[in-house]
């Protein structure tokens, strides 16, 4: 697929070193260490308020972090260090460091005054300065990838939630990212629409996209993730391959989290999650 960049070496895509974050007096991230390899698929799970979204947003500096360092493709994100003190980068510098990272939001965040295609090509035109023809070619390919070529001219409010989220994915893909972050991409969707979005994500995963997905879809995590990360109280409590994590949780908190999940999804059992 031509919209995606070929991804080769498995050197680190994103590295977090002792990342801490507080909102006022509320410490939301407590010294998080995490390495995301290239082409790795990482799912982040954990109870509400455990800091999953904050972690993801820090990885692209939509949220500033107070402690530690985050490296995106080897480059320090959000700050520059001179004479041992660190100074916040300008928006332009930050944008440059994270230019290969795309993000998909829970609420889609499509721009309602543009068509599906308009949404997908806006950045190509405005940020990259492409001609309309060039941009539309790439934009239509991206819509094709998510199976929505026929909806190019529809405005977002004429699309179902699942279609909107797929357009949002196409919008991120059009910029040819090597890393895609997803923050609960299916949580705002009606149950019957979840599948179509997960299907697109599976397809991306199979093509070697580096993905970090915050999700409550345990089935998806079990199937697609190379590694699942369980967060609680602002820290990574446990991490590992999904089979191990879901069948033999080491920490009582993860065990309890999985139990709660199972009782809420009465039909689900661990064996079902892990397939």
């Amino acid at each position: 697929m031509s919209v995606l960049r070929d991804i080769g070496a498995r050197d680190a895509a994103i590295q977090l070193r002792g990342v801490g974050k507080t909102f006022g007096s509320n410490t939301v991230l407590k010294g998080v260490d995490l390495d995301i390899e290239r082409s790795e698929r990482v799912c982040v799970i954990g109870p509400s308020g455990s800091g999953k979204s904050t972690l993801l947003r820090c990885m692209v500096f939509l949220e500033t972090y107070d402690e530690g360092e985050i490296y995106v493709e080897g480059r320090l994100l959000g700050y520059s260090i001179s004479d041992g003190t660190r100074k916040k980068d300008s928006e332009v510098q930050t944008a440059n460091v994270r230019r290969n990272v795309g993000m998909v939001f829970q609420q889609f965040n499509l721009w309602p005054h543009m068509t599906a295609l308009g949404n997908v090509i806006a950045a190509l035109r405005i940020v990259k300065g492409m001609t309309r023809a060039e941009a539309e070619k790439i934009g239509r390919e991206a819509l094709e990838t998510v199976g929505l070529a026929h909806k190019a001219d529809a405005y977002p409010d004429r699309l179902s939630g699942g279609q909107q989220q797929r357009v949002a994915i196409a919008r991120a893909l059009a910029m040819n990212p090597s890393i895609l972050l997803f923050d609960e991409p299916t949580s705002a969707l009606d149950p019957e629409l979840v599948g179509e979005v997960l299907e697109v994500m599976r397809q991306l995963a199979s093509q070697g996209m580096t993905m970090v997905v915050v999700t409550h879809e345990m089935g998806f995590a079990a199937e697609v993730a190379d590694r699942v990360i369980f967060m609680d109280g602002g820290s990574i409590v446990e991490a590992g391959p999904p089979q191990r994590l879901f069948s033999k949780p080491e920490s009582p908190r993860l065990a309890q989290f999985l139990d709660t999940w199972k009782s809420r999804n009465a039909s689900g059992s661990v064996s079902e999650i892990t397939g």
Binding site: A95, R99, V101, G102, N109, A122, I126, V127
Partner: peptide, 18 residues
């Protein structure tokens, strides 16, 4: 205008003015 609309744009490299 939901703040997410601006965040989505920032993630795609839009400047503040854009």
């Amino acid at each position: 205008v939901p703040p997410g609309h601006a965040e989505a744009a920032r993630m795609l490299g839009f400047s503040r003015l854009q």
